[in-house]
Nucleic acid binder design. Structure first.
Length: 805
RNA sequence: GCGGGUAUGGUGGAAUUGGCAGACACGUCGGUCUUAGAAGCCGAUGCCGCGAGGCGUGAAGGUUCAAGUCCUUUUACCCGCACCA
């Protein structure tokens, strides 16, 4: 039986021996396995964490036994809103809340028996850590990648913070699901768009699952097109638009502006209906993102009375409209409308009675019926109604027109991205202070490196201000400083960094967690280089994963780190659902607490079950009976002891089964197919149980194979059977290729595709022999019944199919 | 709207390049042990059929000696993005 009291016994041994402590340097090959470090919330560890961490846990334990120098660290991503909100509600300082939660997480994680290196624990809220987060910020500032700008930002009224695009996906706040509103505010931004190409192209250098890669590609959203300058009729003023289809320029029948477009303000005196436009602008601003999309079906807009636009290619004058289906945040905030080939332009043109001119046709050059809908199948086709580019293919037309625009200085080829710059500011207390001083004479002045860390002031009142003002703004003795450049009275920046700051580089700090001279020593960075295997959730693909790749590539560009990409391989674990297939949630009360499972069934039961539950990357429902099944298996493993004999009994069957199992399990672990690895070990255990007595040599490798998943049980059994030393120090078993196949194998014989009987042949029998045996079998006569054999297909050591007719 | 994924027994899930569908486990049934129960151990278990046999991987077609796997069409659910110019 697996008695759960052995958990603590072995955990103490590992701790006392520092069994999993990684030392930088040495002759061994290094292996760096990383899990997304947890946010220490008051809710404690979740079964989802267990699954997320187990993948790398198994690989780490296996690699150590294979003789590698393994770095498998743990830490805490502890800045952030939930802690701060809890602190405010209960009037406790977030520092105290954080320390308490970290202590709880640590205890929980240790009770599961993870082989983390507990000497490298990091906490992003520790000034010794965030000194370097601030240092990286200063480097970004120095290189022009951190800037302050007044723009439209996403604001969550409930959390009272500005959110980055990545944190407000779907128009709702990541944290509280409230609808976000657009707000014009001056905030810190990081120029992640400068790295858009590098982030895209870097995906070719790494091994990421296809869906992870695809989501990042879509999020960055690179498109190729052209910027074209249209002239305002009768003026020198240019209106620049972005289009991916410059070839359709002959189909332009009107122009459209985002409501916030600055050209409107510039010519307000000449726009006769400027009041009406202001009204429309106000209405658009009031709509949430959600409403703006939902009401998309019904296009609205206002014609600009007083300005008209000239098509630079055709010279044709077209009207100018303002509409909220054009966004200020993408392209130039202005578009050339081609109703014939764009559904949005089509709807708008129909509603407001504008011309619709087809300019792309299928190969035959036929015009299509445009009375009902736009013709959007224009990836390929031939240009019509387009003067000099008539008859050209879409590709040729794009090239020719772009060249024309460039030659005549009225436009240029242009790449665009959907990704926006990263709004890098939180109007909250519990975050890294931005190390910048605002001087009335010198502007934004960075702190000197030797003045880092800039610590958070110890205050009692950290409730955020009403209109997007940080609580730090009220701490006068902290805010008011002298300018480091000119000595004048100045103020500190009072916004703090978003939660994603600390997690954007933490994997580097693990390499050298106590260094006060640098974020990590050159020696450590050059030794550990890159994370070999990084597991985490899909929800971070367009957040943390993209942010940290950006920071790492920046650090690479300025010579701080030795590799361009931080993670060589990425894997993702599937969600654990409640038993009924719904999502686990606090409000539904269907959350499984890992502590309960550990207490009732032991840590190894939890570990085994959570990996046996299904394909590691797929979601799977929790099942209490499944947990019991895992316990039953571990009990069976422990009871193997009663079968074991010191005698040396050879068994051809066991030789084969054992070697097949070693091969299967070793390979499955590498592919993160833990469920089938466990199934293979279960099968082997079933075979062992069929024996009267089993020699130790058939049990020892099994214990080793199972160790990464069930380390307590296997270490205990290892000791009971009297094997030398500690199991965690033993060498990973290898399989003998020659023992994988039996002398004789059974092959199914199909008649017309249906299996009818089986034959036994030597495992190395060739096709001709197999065919002969199959045909000679008396069972065949039943199926032939006067018909003749037309064909026989033999797949060596697999199958025979006899076609009759 | 666009992009991606999933669908296999009563249940969770296996299945390499197209080569025995249902490994492994849960559940159920039976046996054994026991005064009895629990646990353990052993066995059976896709569906229909007494049987021979037939049917069977969301649905409908197709390719092939052979299809869960490839092709075409289609349905349901899940995830991501979304007036992307």
């Amino acid at each position: 039986m697996y008695d759960k009291s052995i958990d603590a016994k072995w955990q103490k041994v590992w701790e006392d021996k520092k069994a999993f402590h990684a030392v930088t340097g040495g002759d061994k090959e290094k292996f760096y396995a990383l899990i997304e470090f947890p946010y220490p919330s008051g809710a404690g560890l979740h079964v989802g964490h267990i699954r997320a961490f187990m993948g790398m846990e198994v690989l780490s334990r296996k690699k150590r036994m294979e003789g590698k120098n393994v770095l498998f660290p743990i830490g805490f991503d502890a800045f952030g809103l939930p802690t701060e909100n809890y602190a405010m509600k209960n009037n406790i300082h977030p520092r105290i809340v954080t320390d308490k939660n970290i202590a709880i997480f640590t205890k929980q994680l240790k009770s599961v028996g993870y082989s983390f290196d507990w000497d490298r624990v990091i906490d992003t809220t520790d000034p010794k850590y965030y000194k370097w987060t601030q240092w990286i910020f200063l480097k970004l500032f120095e290189h022009g990648l951190a800037y302050k700008d007044k723009t439209y930002v996403n604001y969550c009224p409930k959390c009272r913070v500005i959110l980055a695009n990545e944190e407000s996906q779907g128009g709702v706040c990541d944290r509280c699901d409230s609808e976000i509103v657009q707000m014009e505010k001056e905030v810190w931004m990081l120029k992640i768009t400068d790295y858009a190409d590098k982030l895209l192209d870097g995906l070719n250098e790494v091994n990421f699952p296809p869906r992870v890669r695809l989501e990042q590609e879509n999020w960055i959203g690179r498109s190729y097109g052209a910027e074209i300058d249209f002239k305002v009729a009768g003026k020198e003023e240019k209106l620049t638009v972005y289009t991916t289809r410059p070839d359709t320029i002959y189909g332009v029948t009107y122009m459209a502006l985002a409501p916030e477009h600055p050209i409107l303000d510039k010519y307000k005196d000449e726009i006769k209906n400027f009041d009406e436009i202001l009204e429309y602008r106000k209405a658009a601003a009031k709509k949430t993102e959600f409403e703006r999309v939902e009401l998309a079906k019904d296009k609205t807009g206002v014609k600009v009375d007083g300005l008209e636009i000239v098509n630079p290619v055709t010279g044709k004058v077209v009207p100018l409209w303002v509409t909220d289906y054009v966004m200020m945040g993408y392209g130039t905030g202005a578009i050339m409308a081609v109703p014939a080939h764009d559904t949005r332009d089509y709807e708008f043109a129909k509603k407001f009675g504008m011309d619709i001119i087809q300019v792309v046709a299928n190969k035959s050059g036929q015009e299509v019926d445009l009375s009902k809908e736009a013709y959007t199948d224009i990836e390929e086709g031939v240009l019509i109604n387009s003067d000099v580019i008539n008859g050209l293919s879409v590709t040729e037309a794009k090239e020719k027109i772009t060249k024309y625009l460039e030659d005549n200085n009225i436009g240029k080829a242009k790449k665009n991205y959907h990704m926006k710059d990263w709004a890098f500011a939180r109007q909250r207390y519990w975050g890294e202070p931005v190390p910048i001083i605002k001087c009335p004479h010198c502007g934004l002045v960075p702190l000197k490196e030797e003045d880092l860390p800039l610590e958070l002031p110890d205050v009692k009142d950290f409730i955020p201000g009403e209109d997007g003002e940080s609580p730090l703004a009220r701490v006068e003795e902290w805010v008011n400083v002298k300018c480091p450049k000119c000595g004048a009275d100045a103020k500190r920046e009072t916004d703090t960094m978003p939660q994603w700051a600390g997690s954007s580089w933490y994997f580097l700090r693990y390499m050298d967690p106590n260094n006060d001279e640098a974020l990590a020593s050159k020696e450590a960075l050059n030794y550990w280089k890159q994370v070999d295997c990084y597991n985490g959730g899909m929800e971070h693909v367009t957040r943390h994963l993209i942010y940290s790749r950006f920071w790492h590539r920046f650090l690479y560009d300025i010579g701080v780190v030795p590799t361009a990409e931080p993670y060589a391989r990425r894997s993702t674990q599937g969600l654990i659902l409640a038993h009924d297939g719904s999502k686990m949630s606090k409000s539904k009360g269907n959350v499984v607490n890992p502590d309960d499972i550990v207490k009732e069934y032991g840590a190894d039961t939890l570990r085994t079950y959570i990996l046996f539950i299904g394909d590691y990357g797929m979601e799977a429902p929790w099942s209490e009976t499944g947990v019991k099944g895992a316990k039953k298996f571990l009990d069976r493993v422990m009871r193997i002891e009663s079968l074991v004999t010191d005698e040396d009994i050879d068994s051809k069957e066991l030789d084969r089964e054992l070697n097949v199992t070693i091969k299967k399990v070793s390979e499955d672990y590498e592919d993160m197919k833990y469920n089938t690895a466990i199934a293979a070990m279960m099968s082997y255990v079933n075979v062992l149980y069929k024996q009267e007595k089993v020699s130790k040599k058939y049990v020892k490798p099994l214990i080793q194979l199972l160790n990464p998943i069930a380390p307590h049980v296997t270490e205990e059994l290892w000791e009971k059977l009297g094997f030398e030393g500690y199991l965690f120090e033993s060498k990973w078993p290898e399989y003998d290729e020659s023992k994988l196949v039996a002398d004789e194998i059974e092959i199914p014989v199909q008649v017309n595709g249906t299996v009818r009987y089986r034959i036994n042949v030597p495992s190395d029998a060739d096709e001709a022999t197999i065919e002969e045996v199959a045909k000679a079998d008396p069972a065949l006569a039943n199926y032939i019944a006067g018909k003749e054999i037309k064909k026989v297909i033999v797949i060596k050591s697999k199958i025979v199919n006899i076609v009759i007719g």
